[in-house]
Structure formats: structure tokens, C-alpha cells
Design a protein around this nucleic acid. Structure first.
Lengths: 229, 229
DNA sequence: GAGGGATTCAAACTTTCGTTTGAATCAAAC
DNA sequence: GTTTGATTCAAACGAAAGTTTGAATCCCTC
């Protein structure tokens, strides 16, 4: 009946995957786009080319499907987007910071599918649903610690609040382009340079901004230490 | 019947306000907390101590109630949280940046009610619902322009991408503490210093971080200009 | 090719939620 | 005191969405 494509595979579903895999793939896109609550299993099943009852058969319910999707995204994330960006630990700390920023941004902004793996995690950050503790401990905290180590290496004299605050500042800058993407799209509408969406440009700016900030704070800390000596 | 409180005013509703005002007040809290779609009029009416039909009577429907709530929040915001923080335009630019950061943070983090006025706007940023263009043009863009002016004043040699990128970096740092507040609460659980929630501490860090960053970028820009002369 | 487990399907069930309705209540005017 | 308009109320309606069901279909094994 349909003019193009095979008979059984509906819009956007990879026919090479079995139903269970197609469901997770479709669920990832939908959950990433609208969050857990607003996603409908009818929509997910339609995207996956599966019957509505499939989610009950292959997973128990919507919540379990979500949990499996998050788990899948997390595995994919650590495998394809290592936070050191593939650099050896001996690489210069500036390079490792840039790699961290670039990897994080790519995970979130990459318009190529499957790009939802980072998105669902970001979604989860703003609208935690279930097993938040697990996600924090296995997903967020290691990233945060790694970044704190980088900051400490760049600014050995910073106090703990400055270190953790700077790490939060870096992450905040990155996630901003995800959380406020719709507003940003309006704000920058009509630009000719690809500013808010050019990965290299964005990586360069956030890295340079953060490096300059941390070095400046470090310098102030050293001054303070010398004056109170 | 009830042991405490008056007979007619239910949980958390200010009996001094009429039903319409109580509805907006309750709606503001609920919308700020969970967003438009996930908010239920039943919940809002219960918080306001009003009948379920009240939202249909005083407003036409949930969407109109939301629009009025956003409008109310915006009016309240420009009135009570001026982005210059009440400083005269002659104040030093560093002070004006600090005032901008502090005002923005207060608008979002202030645990005192009514603090939802800034929250609904932030919510709207991540989940635009209606009249997004109006919100961007009247609420977001003026803020963004003001901040860009501050950045330009601090770094006259920065190119447009650096200016707008830096402004986005400042806003991203601030909003991070709203968007990821639930994750942050887990991440910092058990801290003794009030780090992520102390307005002075947070203002100080974000201001210092951003100032150092912009100054560093400005210095690099000057070097670049001198070397290519 | 018959049996049997796995999978898919259309349909219905149940809950939640926005909305509507028509009666009841209140308050001010006459 | 009655009238009239505004407001509040309990109840129900209808659509949307998660879940369940039992039959139909597919596919592998013997």
C-alpha cells in the first residue's frame, strides 16, 4: 500500500533490529525529546513499528522500558563517549579539559542519530524519575570527580568550594545548550555563523572561558596566600 | 472540624486573597515545580482552596491560567528583580555584573515564597509552551542584551562570538543550579558548608569565575591584536 | 506437516485529567 | 424581603493514555 519503503517497517524504524531493540531505540528518542511522563507508549510503539502491547510483552510496563532505556544509554555513553575523549592520562591537562568539554557537548548536541543517548541522561537530570541514586553514583559522580581533578590540576591553590564550584560552572555552561536549546534557537534565529550549534566553536569557547577563569582564580588564590603569609 | 487554622482556608492558601489571586498563586508554585503539562488543575485548585470548576470560571481553561500566571510572574519579576540590581548605571561594571548574577540567582533559588516567579520563567525556558516569542522578546532578550553590554564593557576587544558566548556562559552557570537542582542535591548531600545553596557564596563564585574568564579572554584578544598588527 | 512456544495483533478495560453542567449559595440593590 | 447577578459546589462527561486480554500468527523442532 505504501508508496515507498517496505511493507512492514513504519516511519523511522530500523528493520534490522528485533522488536525489543527497536522499542528501546524509539523510546530513547521520545524520552529524550519530551521526558518520561509526557512520552506515550502509543507514540513509542508507532515509532518502533510495534503493537501497543509490545511494551507490556517485552518489558513489563512503561517504567521498566524507561529504566532499560536509561541503562542502555548509559552503557552506550561510557563506551562511545569516554570522558577523557580517548586521550592518555599523560596528555596535557588543557587538552584533557578540551576533550572533556567536546565529548560532553557531542554527547548532547550531535544531531546525528543515535544522539539520544546523552539526551536521556540530561533529561533525567532535570526531571529525575527513578533510580536517581544509581544514576548519580554511576553516571554523574564519576564525571564530576574527573572534572574536579582536572580543575585541581589547573588550580592547585583553589579551595574545595572553588574547585567544585568551577566544575559546576563548566558543566553548567555545557548543559545550558541542551536545557535552553529551544530558547536559544529563538534568540539566535537568523544568524549566519553557526554559533550556537558549531561543535568546534562551542568547544573552543567553553574551554577557553573555563581555562581563563580557573587560571584567574588560581592567580588570585596565590596572591592571597602570599599576602597572608 | 479542623483542629488548626480557620474553617475555610485549606493548606497553604492565603485567605486574604480572592479566589482568582489564590489560583494564580497556587498555579505559580505548581507550574514552577512540575511544568505546564504535568501540573493538574485538581492539584492547583486544592492548593488554592478552590473548587475544580474555579479555573474554568475565573480563567477559561488551564492554558489561559498558565498564560496569566506567566504574565503575572513576568510583571513581578521586572518589578522586584531589576537586572541592574538597583545599582545606578554609573556603578562599576564589576559591581553591576555581581548585581546581575545575584539578582538572577535570587530570583531562582530564593527558598522564600513567593519565589516561583523566577521559576516559572526558567521552566518555560526548558519547556516552552505558548507565546514563546513574546517571552523571548520581552523577558529573555533584554536580559541577554544587558549582559552582553556588561561583557563588552569588561572585554572591549572580544569579538561578537566571544561576547555572546560569554554571556551564555554566565547564564548557563546560573541556571545550572535550577535545572539540575535535584541532581545537585544528591551530589552534595551531606555537606556541612551550605555550598550549593548559599546565595552569597554562589554569587561570589559565579561572579569571580566569570570575571576572571572574561578578563583572560580580553587579554588573549589584545595579544592577538598586537601580534597580527 | 503437526505441535508448541514465542510473538504480534486488535480490542477493551481502567485511571487520570481537563472541561462542562446545573443547582446551590452568597451579596448587594431595591 | 425579594430579586438579581456573581460565585461556588458536587457531579458527571469525554478524551487520552497505561495496561490487560485472548485470539491470531509466525517460526522452529521433531
Amino acid at each position: 500500500m505504501s508508496v515507498e519503503g517496505s511493507l512492514k517497517s513504519p516511519a523511522g524504524a530500523d528493520p534490522g533490529l528485533d522488536t525489543r531493540a527497536r522499542l528501546i531505540e524509539a523510546a530513547g528518542e521520545v524520552f529524550a525529546e519530551v521526558g518520561f511522563k509526557q512520552a506515550t507508549v502509543r507514540d513509542i510503539c508507532a515509532k518502533a513499528g510495534a503493537n501497543i502491547a509490545a511494551v507490556n510483552y517485552h518489558f513489563r510496563d512503561k517504567e521498566t522500558l524507561y529504566a532499560e532505556t536509561i541503562a542502555h544509554a548509559h552503557r552506550y555513553s561510557v563506551e562511545h563517549y569516554p570522558m577523557d575523549g580517548g586521550l592518555p592520562p599523560t596528555a596535557k591537562v588543557e587538552q584533557r579539559l578540551e576533550a572533556f568539554v567536546r565529548t560532553f557537548l557531542a554527547k548532547i548536541l550531535d544531531p546525528n542519530r543515535p544522539s539520544w543517548h546523552g539526551l536521556v541522561m540530561s533529561r533525567e537530570m532535570q526531571e529525575p524519575t527513578l533510580s536517581l541514586d544509581t544514576i548519580v553514583e554511576t553516571g554523574v559522580r564519576p564525571n564530576f570527580h574527573y572534572l574536579c581533578d582536572l580543575v585541581r590540576e589547573l588550580g592547585p591553590h583553589l579551595n574545595p568550594v572553588e574547585v567544585e564550584g568551577s566544575a559546576a560552572s563548566v558543566i553548567g555552561q555545557i548543559l545550558h545548550y541542551f536545557h535552553c536549546r529551544r530558547i536559544i534557537a529563538r534568540l539566535y534565529r537568523g544568524r549566519t555563523d553557526g554559533f550556537p550549534y558549531d561543535l568546534d566553536l562551542l568547544t573552543g569557547h567553553i574551554t577557553a572561558f573555563s581555562l581563563a577563569a580557573i587560571r584567574g582564580l588560581e592567580q588570585q588564590s596565590r596572591h592571597r596566600a602570599e599576602n597572608t603569609r
